[in-house]
Design a protein around this nucleic acid. Structure first.
Length: 528
RNA sequence: CGGGGCGUAGCGCAGUCCGGUAGCGCAUCUGCUUUGGGAGCAGAGGGUCGCCGGUUCGAAUCCGGCCGCCCCGACCA
């Protein structure tokens, strides 16, 4: 099948009826575009008017999340949580397939634990929520609750779990026979941020954190790299979100890590979003928590470590990668209900005929392993259901009405480009499987095209300043600066060092800022 | 912490300048007609106008104080 390469991320082309991407879909019998010129999603600010307003509007209107009474916290609503659950299922499978097991460590960590690793303290101290009391007391004079039972040692709400986990690993690891220890946990964590953003940065969020212990440096580094590739594969295959994977600069490193690897994605406004990190921790935490093991030569050695994580931020990344002015677009592989079914009828007789065929088709789709959400409400019109289904982001909609019964067909509409396909009922289920697959590829291709066309080699600092100021995307530059130099670039341009790509040419050059020798180009960009 | 905005029905807002019966749209409820791109008509319910104090015969509106939230920036996944 030939991949479509035209108008890939300009769905306006399709929406205004000028698109004829028949090659996108080999099973298309007939493709039409209805005129949507007088149709606008309610209450969603268009992307080109105000991108961050658009993002907030989409999250709210699609009922993905809501603000909580506590500043900086969010409620993840069923539509948003469904996406997170799909992310969890797919990733958890990948973790299990690479030998990891799940466990759960507690939220509360003794303050003293955080103090044990010097860099770690510096990195997280400022953003910790702290528990200082064990209770409350109602005062009769003012009828208010007052703090009671001050704790001897304050407890912090974990901003990440390295400390508590390594305190436990100390007890669990004695011999090389206990290694490697490959544990993951799905948990909530707290980071008291100054400025928050739904899904992308909230005071409390959900994530997974893998924490592994190894006998050798090389094995630990390989583990960190393995999980980096798991993340890249997941992002690209499931989220249809192309990423650049590589290593962080010293200045962007995780507090306590020797090396931090990451995947960086590009959002539709061409800003970068760090979508996952994997750290080679060396022996830093083993030394801080005195975790040693006896090797085969009967000598004591410190354990080598990794940690790696992705969070509910991925839900935000998914939205900002694919969605449009009419709402969310979820790639088929992460959709709980890839198919949204709308039956159409007027009279009761029509209803029973339509529903019989519809149920039979839904049965066929379920046999093919495809989840179908049937909207059989009688109190809203089909048009309303269409709009709502698009807002929530089901990848495909199927319509079945009296006219279709006559022709023995079903109408299938793709959410991401609004192409309509008419399929004969007896083959529909099988064809829909193929279409979903093509939609998944389409979404990836158009995101990949955006990433590629908005990434440019920049060769001087002046050119760089201009490029960044124009919000044109990722800059590939030669870099040999230190953390201080990075800070200067950030102050002067707002762009930050994102990643030293693992792939790409290893051409030598001169650092755009310092003029020093550079071994390869790195990515700089504005970022979330 | 700076800059901007907002707080009035479930949601979105008008009313505040210039004090005088608290309104509009959507949503909700009832009934009938509808249903292939956000249905129509008729009727109904729903309020501590963010909080505290002051001025006044009378405050959503004027004055003083406080609180909260959102967006933008610095910090950060």
């Amino acid at each position: 099948m030939e991949e479509c390469t035209q108008d890939l991320w300009s769905d306006r082309q399709c929406r205004w009826g000028r698109c004829h991407h028949l090659s996108c879909n080999p099973v298309t019998h007939f493709t039409t575009h209805h005129d949507l010129s007088n149709y606008m999603a309610k209450n969603i600010t268009p992307r080109d008017k105000d991108y961050s307003e658009w993002y907030v509007d989409v999250v709210r209107e699609a009922k993905l999340a809501d603000y909580s009474p506590v500043k900086g916290c969010m409620v993840i609503r069923p539509n948003g949580y469904a996406i997170w659950e799909e992310i969890q299922h797919a990733l958890d499978r990948m973790f299990k397939d690479t030998g990891h097991v799940n466990a759960y460590f507690p939220t509360l960590i003794p303050q003293s634990f955080l103090e044990k690793e010097a860099e770690h303290v510096k990195g997280f101290a400022l953003e910790c929520a702290v528990v200082t009391h064990s209770g409350l007391e109602l005062h009769e004079d003012d009828h208010k609750l007052h703090l009671k039972g001050k704790l001897e040692e304050p407890l912090i709400l974990r901003p990440t779990s390295e400390t508590i986990i390594w305190a436990m690993y100390k007890n669990w690891i004695q011999s090389y026979r206990d290694l490697p220890l490959l544990i993951n946990q799905w948990a909530n964590i707290f980071r008291w941020e100054m400025r928050t953003r739904l899904f992308l940065r909230t005071a409390e969020f959900l994530w997974q954190e893998g924490h592994t212990a190894h006998a050798t440096s090389q094995e630990a580094d390989e583990e960190a790299m393995r999980m980096l590739h798991v993340y890249k594969t997941f992002a690209e295959d499931f989220m249809a979100m192309p990423v650049i994977h590589g290593e962080k600069s010293e200045g962007q490193r995780f507090p306590g890590a020797v090396r931090t690897y990451c995947i960086e994605a590009m959002m539709q406004d061409k800003k970068a979003l760090q979508a996952g990190t994997s750290h080679f921790l060396g022996q830093n935490f083993a030394k801080a928590f005195d975790v040693t093991f006896q090797n085969e030569q009967n000598q004591l050695e410190y354990v080598w470590a990794t940690s790696w994580g992705v969070s509910t931020r991925l839900v935000g990344a998914l939205i900002m990668t694919h969605s449009d002015d009419d709402g969310v677009i979820v790639p088929p592989k992460l959709a709980t209900w890839p198919v949204f079914a709308v039956p159409i009828y007027r009279k009761p007789e029509e209803r029973s005929l339509v529903m019989a065929k519809m149920n039979s088709l839904i049965g066929d789709l379920k046999t093919q392993g495809i989840g179908v959400k049937l909207d059989d409400r009688d109190n809203v019109t089909p048009g309303f259901k269409f709009a709502e289904g698009e807002l929530v982001g089901h990848p495909l909609r199927i319509e079945l009405g009296p006219k279709d019964l006559e022709k023995n067909q079903v109408v299938v509409t793709k959410r991401h480009n609004r192409e309509k396909v008419f399929l004969p009922l007896d083959r529909a289920a099988a064809e829909i499987v193929t279409i979903l697959d093509s939609v998944q590829k389409d979404l990836f291709t158009r995101a990949k095209t955006r990433l590629e066309t908005s990434t440019k080699e920049i060769n001087s600092y002046d050119e760089f300043k201009e490029y960044i100021a124009a919000d044109e995307g990722f800059a590939l530059v030669h870099w040999a600066g230190n953390t201080e130099d990075e800070r200067r670039v950030q102050e002067e341009t707002k762009a930050t060092h994102r990643v030293i790509p693992l792939e790409g040419t290893r051409e030598k050059g001169k650092c755009m800022l310092t003029g020093k020798e550079s071994a390869q180009r790195v990515v700089f960009s504005k970022a979330y």
